[in-house]
């Protein structure tokens, strides 16, 4: 579509700006506390695992972890 230069050289300031914006949005989420839904999910998986282990021990001899 548009004419393409063989070498796309970005101004270092522009590149740094893009990097900062990118990181800012990312870090914003990174710093948020873990929502309860995930704590609950992991707790639920943990519980189910315990039950499943007991069941599978009876059903099959599978030593893999």
């Amino acid at each position: 579509m548009t004419q393409r230069k063989p070498e796309n050289k970005l101004d270092p300031d522009v590149q740094a700006h893009i990097g900062r914006q990118l990181r800012a949005g990312y870090v914003d989420i990174l710093n948020q506390p873990v929502p309860d839904r995930f704590l609950e999910l992991l707790a639920e998986l943990d519980t189910r695992e315990g039950e499943a282990e007991r069941t599978s021990d009876e059903l099959r001899q599978n030593g893999s972890r």
């Binding site: 990312y26 989420i29 948020q32 873990v34 995930f38 707790a43």
Partner: peptide
């Protein structure tokens, strides 16, 4: 425990997922 191990990475996973999808 695997639960704790996964827990540590949830903030990174969320940041990655939001950046990818653009929707929280």
């Amino acid at each position: 425990a695997p639960r704790d191990e996964l827990l540590v990475h949830i903030p990174s996973l969320r940041a990655f997922a939001v950046s990818l999808s653009g929707q929280l």
